[in-house]
Design a protein around this nucleic acid. Structure first.
Lengths: 258, 258
DNA sequence: CCCTTAATTCCACTTAGTGGAAATGCGTAA
DNA sequence: TTACGCATTTCCACTAAGTGGAATTAAGGG
């Protein structure tokens, strides 16, 4: 009786919409085209249902049909919605320019991200490249939450219950080294609580430090700074960490005033 | 009997999904947060339906809830899907780097766009800025099809029937100057057919020229080059047009080989 | 504290969506 | 060319999932 029924007259949401979104989500960097069959496999939906939903997504302009391959590909609409998202993000609007300035000043990469399920997604990632003082700005890229400074700073910033929920998910998905990994994640979280930031090198020869940005009424964000082609040292991590703390403080100040 | 019924067992698509997408589309640059009421107004959907669909979109991670304002905002997921789109675009992958090089070489803006309904959306827009030789890359921005060189080049590239359908839509929406505008659009299309490109200045003091890129199995794209702070002259348009023709030819060559 | 305004939940109704099975279409090999 | 095999789409009977108007609840504002 009290059984929370999925899908009935409304309390839980709309099934078809949820499924359609799941189809869009099946496209990710690396899988540029998908046929109905493959979508059905990846999402676990019946083939006929997929067929109907992909048709709808084509009609709505979210997918392009690639007749030759009997497949679909994400349509340009999705980036225009993405653009609207970035445009409407008060955090990015407020501190985006500051991030660029900071990247130039400190000569390192500066990024802002938040969570999408168990991944962190960059709202903006400013890649500082010493040669030519050229900036490369990327948005939308995903990195794994549990392995990155960004993700761990995020975990440190969110509510306890949500954090534990996510940690359980990591345990479930990573086949190896789970114990050690989780301990490492918790160490990073402690580091954030103690020093304000955490430092992680999940890519070889890049040192990244990150700190959470918590504002009420908004999702938790994480701000990071990173440097390529360095060998990791605590001294360096401390230095960048202090830059990051100072910068984050400045950002929070700006963000506090609306 | 033969009446093509909207929404039944499948031929036309899925209503809830279509509506959900329409809700996402209601967010655009300038409208960063929307409440259920406002969404209902803009989409014409009943309030209770909107309430359920927005809940689903929140659960699916496409919207963030802004409790304080009883409103919603696009979530970070949408940019990660947008990123997947850009990553998976064979055209952007092939000619993106060429566009950057060309922008630096010619010292002007270079853009690639395709259509989203009646707007053109940039897959990439490389803004050349003389001071500091600094590039600013934007993706997802929309510009009106009928007013821009990009849009008119696109119109020149698509099938006749689709073109006429779109022209009718422009007629319907623009309240003033329709006659003159449509004539101007047709002139631009003729210009593409004759010279390979069309030139338009829809923003004051910026001259833009564009050309279509037609490849089978893919949507029609348009490539443009533009220059700020110039006064429009046919001589200048011709010069940029010839650069563009040359560049587009090079692009098509690259694209033809897979 | 009450009143206004907006969002959410209820609920009876039934249409819109479902998924297995059949049919169609497409590419390939013979 | 024809026949085969695979994948996608259409069909169709079934009914649960979704709908929207009305009632309810929640949230500021005076």
């Amino acid at each position: 009786m009290a059984q929370a029924r999925r899908y009935a007259g409304g309390v839980d949401g709309n099934r078809s919409l949820e499924r359609g979104i799941e189809i869009l989500r099946a496209f990710r960097p690396g899988v540029d085209t998908l046929g109905n069959g493959e979508i059905a496999e990846r999402t676990g939906l019946p083939r006929s249902t997929v067929s109907r939903l992909t048709r709808t997504l084509v009609n709505s302009g979210m997918l392009d049909e690639v007749r030759a391959e009997r497949a679909y590909r994400l349509a340009a609409s999705v980036i225009s919605i993405g653009h609207a998202m970035r445009t409407g993000s008060p955090v990015l609007n407020a501190i985006g320019p500051m991030m660029r300035a900071e990247s130039a000043k400190r000569r390192l990469n500066v990024g802002l991200a938040t969570a999408d399920r168990t991944m962190m997604v960059y709202l903006e990632s400013i890649r500082y490249s010493p040669r030519a003082a050229l900036r490369n700005v990327v948005a939308g890229q995903q990195v794994p939450m549990e392995l990155t400074s960004l993700g761990r700073a995020y975990l440190a910033g969110i509510a306890e219950t949500e954090r534990e929920r996510l940690l359980k998910l990591f345990k479930r998905r990573s086949t190896a080294a789970t114990k050690a990994l989780l301990a490492d994640v918790r160490r990073s979280i402690a580091s954030v609580e103690c020093d304000g930031y955490c430092a992680v090198s999940w890519q070889p020869a890049v040192l990244a430090v990150a700190t959470p940005i918590v504002l009420d009424g908004l999702p938790v964000y994480a701000l990071n700074m990173s440097l390529q082609n360095v060998d990791r040292s605590d001294a360096l991590a401390n230095e960048i960490g202090s830059y990051l703390n100072a910068f984050a403080a400045k950002c929070k100040e700006v963000l506090a005033s609306r």
